[in-house]
């Protein structure tokens, strides 16, 4: 059986990949204020963790644990903190981070000018004294708007693969 058709042009696929790769570069270079220019005004940005539940028990609704629940205003606040070493103990000096983006799958979004983009993400975070460094395994479900001049992040629902997160904090964006 063939894989599902996505009805996405080569140009659209390439644009979505470039968006995610460029965004990852901004994160790893701590260029958060520039990232703010890539997101929509009514962005919904969340990260959840799973809980371990029975696969057999269909009566139990999936329960997830929220880790981030952000809108543009709260992201702006977080970024002002990250961008100013005087406003943060845990990111001063900044962590090393490396966002590895893979398995990018693009489909038509709910609206004609939207792309639904699925990607795997592995984020290295190293913080000097606190060894060992941590790798966050994450899957992301994004909606990107096609707007004049390119793509814009409309929403991101990311899910951690860890149910107990093996690191003392997530100070970076994912």
């Amino acid at each position: 059986m063939p894989i599902p058709k996505t009805n996405i042009s080569d140009g659209e696929y390439r644009a979505a990949c470039e968006f995610l790769i460029y965004e990852a570069r901004l994160f790893d270079q701590h260029r958060y204020l520039e990232w703010l220019e890539l997101i929509s005004d009514d962005i919904h940005y969340e990260l959840v963790a799973p809980t371990v539940q029975s696969a057999a028990d269909a009566t139990t609704a999936p329960k997830t644990v929220p880790l981030f629940s952000e809108n543009r205003a709260s992201l702006q606040t977080r970024i002002e903190q990250l961008a100013n070493p005087a406003f943060t103990v845990s990111e001063s000096p900044p962590s090393r981070s490396r966002h590895f983006v893979t398995n990018i799958w693009v489909e038509r979004g709910g609206q004609a000018d939207q792309l639904a983009v699925f990607s795997n993400l592995l984020v290295y975070r190293g913080r000097g004294f606190d060894l060992p460094p941590h790798f966050f395994p994450i899957v992301r479900n994004d909606i990107l708007n096609q707007v004049d001049g390119g793509l814009q992040l409309e929403s991101r629902r990311a899910e951690s693969d860890e149910h107990i997160i093996g690191s003392r904090s997530i100070t970076l964006l994912i």
Partner: peptide, 13 residues
């Protein structure tokens, strides 16, 4: 979540 928790702006410090 934004202040006290895994991604909390106070907590992480």
């Amino acid at each position: 979540l934004r202040t006290f928790g895994m991604s909390g702006m106070f907590e992480e410090d």
